Simulated assay, not measured.
Amino acid sequence: MCGRFAITLPDDAMAQLFGALPSNDLPEVPRYNVCPTTQIATLTSAEGARRLRPMRWGLIPHWYKTPTDGPLLINARAETVAEKPAFRAACRERRCIVPASGFYEWTKDAEGNRLPWYITRADGAPMAFAAIWQEWSREGEDKVDGPTCAIVTTAATHEMAEIHHRTPVILEPDDWALWLGEAGKGAAPLMQPPPEGALRMWRVDRAVNSNRASGESLIEPIAP
């Protein structure tokens, strides 16, 4: 799965990278410990225009009466995303991209302590996670509304599997238009693991185990 990530690109750099118009309410960057249920920057495309816009990380199906009516859906499995009732319409009609610099996964030592790892692209380029989104709203005295999203994951590469058995689907620039629906249909083949050797990873300090931790030191390597 993907439960935490980092994004360090400034808004204007993200907009230039994706050829998108940025919203004026994007979350502040850099962020070294992006957690579920927070607002994240996403890329969508409609009527021939790309937009960088904020969404809540954690897709809320339209039938939820409250955000906690069911499981927290921060990830969608590539193998079943087109079939699950919570995801299938979004997979067909509302695909988006989540920009990231890297993401975290955890192993455990002999005592059961959670040991965090930071994973990024070996070539140093920004990551573009495949994702899907869903508008959600609740009427009433405390009305809540807005777009929500989930990151698509797939089976890990051999090297990544030593840390975790799942990895986000990482899209290459040539695939962005197809995933966003700009280049027709047939995006399913894009939901594959990255090639072997495409990722690099290193142990980081256990400070990131807290969702309140922040700062560049969270991604600095430490001795395994």
Rank of each mutant, 00 (worst) to 15 (best):
C96F: 10
T167H: 03
W63T: 02
P54E: 04
E79S: 02
E79I: 06
P54V: 06
S137A: 15
F87G: 02
E162D: 07
E141L: 13
A161L: 07
Y104K: 04
C149P: 01
I170V: 15
R138M: 14
C91S: 01
I60S: 03
I119L: 15
L59T: 03
A49F: 06
A86D: 05
E139K: 13
R53C: 00
E93N: 13
P54F: 11
T154V: 14
A82Y: 01
C149Y: 06
Y104N: 02
A89P: 00
T167G: 00
G112M: 12
T157W: 11
P168M: 12
A125H: 12
M127S: 02
M55K: 09
P168R: 08
W133Y: 15
H62I: 09
L171R: 06
V152M: 11
R56Y: 05
D175V: 00
A110P: 00
D174T: 12
A128M: 09
R50Q: 06
E159N: 04
E79A: 03
A49C: 04
A125C: 03
K143M: 09
D175E: 15
V169N: 03
C91D: 01
P126A: 08
R50G: 03
I119M: 13
E111L: 09
A90Q: 02
D175W: 11
M160A: 11
F87K: 06
M55L: 13
T153W: 12
V169E: 04
Y118P: 03
P54G: 03
P85E: 02
R138H: 13
I170T: 04
H62V: 12
G48W: 13
D174V: 13
L72S: 09
I170W: 07
A76G: 00
A128S: 15
E162Q: 14
R92V: 11
R51D: 01
P173D: 10
R77S: 08
H164Q: 10
L115Q: 15
G70F: 08
D123P: 04
I97L: 13
A82S: 13
D123L: 11
T120S: 14
C96K: 07
G140M: 10
G102R: 05
R166I: 10
S101G: 12
G102Q: 09
E79M: 05
G58Q: 08
R77D: 03
T80S: 08
V144Q: 14
R95F: 10
V144A: 12
P85R: 05
Q134V: 03
A131N: 04
L59W: 12
E162P: 00
W63F: 12
A90E: 02
R95E: 07
K65S: 05
R92G: 00
G102H: 11
C91F: 15
A150G: 01
E93Y: 11
P85V: 05
D145F: 14
A86F: 08
G140K: 09
S101D: 05
E105W: 09
A90S: 15
A122W: 11
K108W: 10
L73T: 01
R121I: 04
A100H: 05
G48K: 07
R166A: 05
R77N: 07
R77T: 01
R77P: 00
E111R: 12
E93W: 08
A89S: 12
R51N: 06
D145N: 13
V144C: 02
A125P: 01
M55W: 11
D142K: 14
E135A: 09
R114I: 00
P147R: 04
H158M: 01
G48D: 06
V169L: 09
